[in-house]
Design a protein around this nucleic acid. Structure first.
Lengths: 301, 301
DNA sequence: CCACCGCCGAAAGTATCTTTCAAAGGTGAC
DNA sequence: GTCACCTTTGAAAGATACTTTCGGCGGTGG
C-alpha cells in the first residue's frame, strides 16, 4: 500500500512537514530540494511564485508543480495557499513569547504586542474578579439617584470624568470632581437618595477618601472602585467594586493597568444602568448623538 | 492617486476583519459587498478565484481587485493568501465565545462578560492593525520634541489628557487641550521641532482638526490618532495612527470601544518614547512616583 | 560501448489576475 | 428640472502566473 497518497486524501492542512518526511524517500533529488525548502520556510515560500521557488531551489517550474502534486495538492497554487495557512498558524503559535516583561530594547512591534496582551489580561482578570452582587447594588442606586458625585484624582480622575460624561448622556445628573476642595464642598450637599462614587487604585488617596466620607456621613449611598478592597476608602463605602492589579514594572507603571481595569468597571456600571433605565436612557442617548452630529465636517469621505 | 493609507506597512496578517471595519465607511457599495463576503467567510473566499468571488458578490473582477488594494494588498492574489492564513488561524483558534450583542434583558454577569470580551477584541484588533512604521516615526518625533501639544474633545479629550499626564511624567513638555480656542492659540506657537497630536475617532471633528492644521502650517510635526485613516484630519497629519472600529449598538456606543483603542495607542506611544529616552525618563518617572507617595494615607492596612 | 529508462527543464499552452476604458449612475449648480 | 461633472462600475484587452508537453540528458545494465 505505497500508492494512493494522493488519491482520496484531501489536501493537508498543517501536517505538511510530516508529509514531506514521509514522502521524501520516494522523491527524486530535485523534488527533495523543493520539498525541503517548503518544509523549512513555509512563510518564505508562500511569498514566492512558481518561478521564484524554482529559481530558489535551482530547479524548474515543472518540478515544483510535480512536487506539489506529490504532496497531495491539485497544483502549486493550492500548495501555496496551504503554505500561507501554515505560516499563519505557527505565527500565532509563537504568541506566548509576548508574556515576558517589556524590556528597554524591545522592538516596537513587541512593545505593541505585549501591551495589548497585558491589557487583555487585565480585562479578563477584572471581569473574573468583579462581584456582580455589589455591581447590581451600585447600579440600582445609580438608576434611581437624585444626583451623582464622582471623585477621582490623577489618572483615576480621567476615569471619573469618563463615567460622569457617560451618565450625563443618559440623562442622569452626574458630576465628576478632580479638585479635592470642590469635591468636599459638593459632598456636603448630598443626602439620602444621592450616590457618591470614589475611584482610587491605591484605596488610600486622602483627597478622594475625604469627600466620600463626607457624602457617607450625610447619608448618601457610597460606592468605591478600588484595587484594594481592604484599603481605607472602603470604610465609607456601601458597595465595593474591585479592580484587578497587574504586575507592574518600570516601563509599565501600575497606573496603566489600573486605568484599563477601572474603565471596564465604569463601562459595566454605565451599561447596566442604561439597561435599567432604558425607557429614559435610550432617547437621551439618541439626543446627545444627534446634537454632536453637526460638529463633524460634512464630507466624511 | 491617493492610495496606501497604511504607508510602507506590509499586508496585514490577521487584522483583516478589523481593517474591513475600519475602511468600510470609505468604500463604495460594491466594494463593501466584497469586503463583507471576505470578512464573513475567509476560508470560503480563499478557495475562490477572482472571477468566482466576483460572481459570488455580484460584482466584477475589477471591483474585487480594487477592494484588495484598498485593504492594503498589492492585488487579489495576496489578499487570497492572507485569507488562507486567517482561515487557518481561526481554525486552530476556535474562539466562539460570547459574541452576541448586549441585550436589554441580559443578566449582569453576561453584560460584564460581553463587555470584557468586546474590549479584549478591540485591543487585539488595534494591535494587529497598528502601523509600526508610523508609530516609530511618531515616537522619534516625540522623543526629541521641544514641545508637545495634544488636541482632543469629548471622550477623546480624556485620552488626550491621559497622554499629556504620561508624557509630563517622563519629563517632556506636553500639554493637552480640550478648549478649541485655547488649542488654536497654542498651536500658533508651535514650529519645526515641535509635535502636535490630534485625537478624534471620527476623523472629522472640526474643533480638533483646526488646531492641527495650524500646527501643521507652522511647521510642527503632526500626528493623528483616528479611526478613519481617510478622514479630513489626515490631510494635516505627517503620521497617522489608526484605531480600530468595533461594531456598535445602542447599549454599546462607539465611544466606548474607540476609547479603549485610543488608550492602547497612547500607551504604545508612551512606552516607546520612554524606551527611547530611558536615560532621562527613568529618573523622571521615579521622581513623580516619589512625589505622590505622600498623598496616600500611611496606613494602607 | 551501446541501449534503455526515468528524471529534468525549456517552451508552448492555459488559467488567473490586472489594467484600461467607456458607459451607467449619482450629485450639485443653475 | 436639467445640464455638467465626478464617481463608480463592469467588459474586455493585456499581463502574469501556473500547467502541460516534449525532447534531451544522465545514469544503469547488458
Amino acid at each position: 500500500m505505497k500508492e494512493s497518497f494522493t488519491s482520496g486524501a484531501p489536501p493537508a492542512p498543517a501536517a505538511l512537514a510530516a508529509k514531506v518526511r514521509t514522502l521524501a524517500p520516494s522523491m527524486t533529488r530535485s523534488m527533495q530540494r523543493v520539498a525541503e525548502a517548503v518544509a523549512g520556510d513555509p512563510a518564505g515560500c508562500a511569498a514566492l511564485t512558481v518561478t521564484g521557488l524554482a529559481e530558489l531551489t535551482g530547479t524548474s517550474e515543472a518540478t515544483v508543480v510535480r512536487t506539489a502534486r506529490l504532496l497531495g495538492y491539485p497544483g502549486y497554487r493550492d500548495l501555496r495557499l496551504a503554505l500561507a495557512g501554515l505560516a499563519a498558524q505557527q505565527q500565532s503559535g509563537r504568541a506566548p513569547a509576548v508574556t515576558a516583561d517589556i524590556a528597554v530594547d524591545d522592538p516596537i512591534a513587541d512593545v505593541v504586542a505585549k501591551l495589548a496582551y497585558d491589557e487583555q489580561q487585565t480585562l479578563a482578570d477584572t471581569a473574573a474578579g468583579l462581584d456582580t452582587v455589589q455591581l447590581g447594588a451600585a447600579v440600582a442606586a445609580l438608576a434611581t439617584a437624585r444626583r451623582i458625585d464622582i471623585y477621582g484624582i490623577g489618572a483615576s480622575g480621567l476615569v471619573a470624568q469618563d463615567l460622569g460624561q457617560k451618565l450625563l448622556r443618559i440623562g442622569l445628573i452626574a458630576h465628576a470632581h478632580s479638585d479635592p476642595h470642590l469635591a468636599v464642598t459638593n459632598a456636603v450637599q448630598l443626602r439620602s437618595g444621592d450616590v457618591a462614587i470614589a475611584i482610587t487604585h491605591s484605596g488610600s488617596t486622602g483627597d478622594v477618601i475625604e469627600p466620600l466620607r463626607v457624602a457617607f456621613d450625610h447619608g448618601a449611598t457610597t460606592v468605591a472602585i478600588t484595587g484594594r478592597p481592604d484599603g481605607p476608602v472602603t470604610q465609607y463605602a456601601d458597595h465595593i467594586l474591585t479592580t484587578s492589579t497587574a504586575r507592574e514594572s518600570e516601563l509599565r507603571p501600575a497606573a496603566m493597568s489600573s486605568r484599563t481595569s477601572q474603565l471596564l468597571v465604569v463601562d459595566c456600571l454605565f451599561t447596566c444602568v442604561t439597561q435599567r433605565t432604558y425607557e429614559t436612557a435610550a432617547p437621551a442617548l439618541a439626543a446627545s448623538y444627534e446634537a454632536l452630529a453637526h460638529r463633524h465636517s460634512p464630507r466624511t469621505r
